[in-house]
């Protein structure tokens, strides 16, 4: 004789419904426990796998966040840049040397990034200083070696590439001017006002950010921690002061 098998659960359910007494109730509890136990065991296995994976990643890497706060990895960008003769394509990461370390003996340049608007008064006032500093920190005769880049945005009034070229010529800012009139790079770098300055290590880590905190902290690449910087005159740290203090500290010139 062949019988259609009745699932065990249905049988127990019937026993329970037909008041089979304590026995049916106990069987039902047992099955419920079995379900809970299966879920718990599966949970333990899955979570063990998850945390094992997470631990392996945590112990074998030392992640650095991307951003423009000190100690973070500066967002890379590309665009068209004016070098005094023509507009050419420019890649920020071409300037980086990922093998750089704080006590590197090679003369690898640091990168000073200025966000400016050709219509901004403060940017115009700072332009002569930028011209001086870009000459001063050219790596000649033991001076710090810094590549200066200006990123031209359009925060104040409508601007154009012609205005950028005129600004560069007028103030003798003889370094690259990147066209960011669409403000894509400014958004990535969280720049809300001009002028804004950043000093970036050769390996792409932001060492100083003019807009951060009290404007007097920098990144010590040797210790991998932020440190206070000293303003020479008024306590306010300017780009040139940050260059001198951080590059001397890290032996990177």
């Amino acid at each position: 004789m062949t019988t259609e098998p009745i699932p065990l659960r249905q049988t127990i359910g019937l026993m329970h419904e037909n008041e089979f007494g304590k026995f049916g109730e106990n069987m039902k509890t047992m099955l419920d426990n079995q379900e809970g136990s299966a879920r718990s065991e599966a949970g333990i296995i899955a979570m063990s796998m998850f945390f094992a994976g997470l631990l392996v990643v945590a112990f074998t890497t030392n992640p650095i966040a991307s951003g423009t706060q000190i100690g973070e990895r500066a967002p890379v960008f590309s665009g068209e840049a004016y070098d005094g003769t023509s507009w050419k394509s420019f890649q920020f990461d071409d300037l980086l040397d990922m093998s750089w370390t704080w006590n590197a003996t090679e003369d690898v340049p640091w990168i000073a990034v200025e966000f400016l608007d050709t219509d901004c008064g403060h940017c115009k006032n700072a332009a002569p200083d930028m011209a001086t500093w870009s000459q001063e920190f050219s790596g000649v005769n033991g001076a710090p070696n810094v590549v200066f880049i200006a990123i031209a945005v359009e925060f104040v009034a409508e601007s154009s590439r012609a205005e950028i070229v005129d600004f560069r010529t007028q103030y003798e800012n003889n370094f690259l001017f990147v066209d960011d009139l669409d403000e894509d790079i400014a958004k990535d770098w969280d720049v809300l006002a001009t002028p804004s300055y950043f000093l970036v290590q050769p390996d792409g880590i932001v060492a100083w950010n003019s807009g951060q905190a009290t404007n007097s902290i920098g990144w010590d690449a040797k210790e991998e921690k932020s440190i206070p910087l000293n303003g020479f005159d008024d306590g306010y740290v300017q780009l040139n002061e940050a260059i001198v203090q951080l590059m001397m500290l890290n032996g990177g010139e």
Binding site: E35, A38, A42, G43
Partner: peptide, 23 residues
Amino acid sequence: GMVAFTALMWLVITIAKDPMSPQ
């Protein structure tokens, strides 16, 4: 991805351990 596959793994193992469950 790790979270997603952990969740899927939990579902699969639970089904495998108690395939007759009404759940």
